[in-house]
Amino acid sequence: MKPDGLITLRSSHGPVQTMDRLVEAVTRNGMAVLARIDHAGAAEKVGLNLRPTEVVIFGNPKAGTPLMQEVQTTGIDLPLKALVWQDEAGATWLSYNDPSWLAARHGLGSGKDKVLGIISAALENCARQATGNA
C-alpha cells in the first residue's frame, strides 16, 4: 500500500550509505541539514527491534518561507523530511513527501508553482543522487 503523496525510490546502497549520500546531496544543493533522527537506535534503547529507519530534516528558508507566508499551516510539513528505511527483505528505500501533495494539502495557490517546482526538482535530484538512480 502506497501512502498518498509519498514518493519512494529503491536504493542501490545500504541504509547508512544512502542516508550519508542524501545528507551530502542536500548540503551540496544549498540546503541545511537540521536533524537526523535514528528511529532504530531509539527503539534499541528501550529494548525494541526496528530495521534501519532514519529521518533527515532539511531545508532552505528562502524556499520554505514564501509557502508559509501564504498558508502558515504549511509549517507543519516544513522543513522537508526524508526517510531512509530497510524492508523485510533487506532492500533499502528512500521516501519523501511530494511537494505538490503538500501544496494541495495546505491549499497553496498557483502563484507558488515556481517555488514548488524548484523544491520538487531539488528533492528528486537529491533522492536520485542518494539512491544511485541519478
Rank of each mutant, 00 (worst) to 15 (best):
Q72A: 13
M19S: 07
L108M: 07
G30V: 09
G59V: 12
L22F: 15
P79D: 14
P15K: 02
P3T: 14
T18A: 12
G90V: 10
A89W: 03
Y96E: 13
G30F: 09
T27Y: 01
T73V: 04
G109K: 05
L34E: 07
L9N: 02
T8H: 00
E124V: 08
R21I: 02
T8V: 14
N125A: 13
Q17I: 10
N60V: 11
E24F: 08
I7S: 02
G41Y: 07
W93G: 06
I57Q: 15
T73R: 00
G107R: 04
F58A: 06
M1V: 11
T131I: 05
K45N: 03
K62Y: 06
T8W: 07
F58R: 02
T18Y: 02
D20P: 02
W85A: 08
N97E: 14
G59F: 09
E44H: 13
D113W: 04
A89G: 06
S95L: 09
K45F: 08
A121P: 02
L9P: 03
K2C: 04
S100P: 00
T18W: 08
K81I: 09
E24R: 11
V33N: 00
L83R: 01
N125M: 06
V16K: 06
A104M: 12
Q86M: 13
L50F: 06
A32S: 05
N133A: 14
I37N: 05
Y96S: 10
G107K: 06
V71M: 02
A63I: 14
P79L: 06
A25F: 07
S100T: 08
V46D: 05
E54I: 14
S110N: 13
Q129L: 15
A122K: 03
K45H: 07
G64M: 04
V55Q: 11
Q129M: 14
A91Y: 08
E44R: 11
I7D: 03
E54G: 01
A121K: 12
G111R: 03
V56G: 05
V115I: 15
L116E: 04
G90I: 12
N49Q: 13
Q72C: 03
N29H: 15
M31R: 05
V84S: 04
T131D: 09
F58E: 05
K2R: 11
C126R: 00
A25T: 12
K45A: 10
R28A: 15
E44Q: 14
A82W: 02
G75Y: 09
I57W: 07
T73H: 00
G59A: 10
M1K: 00
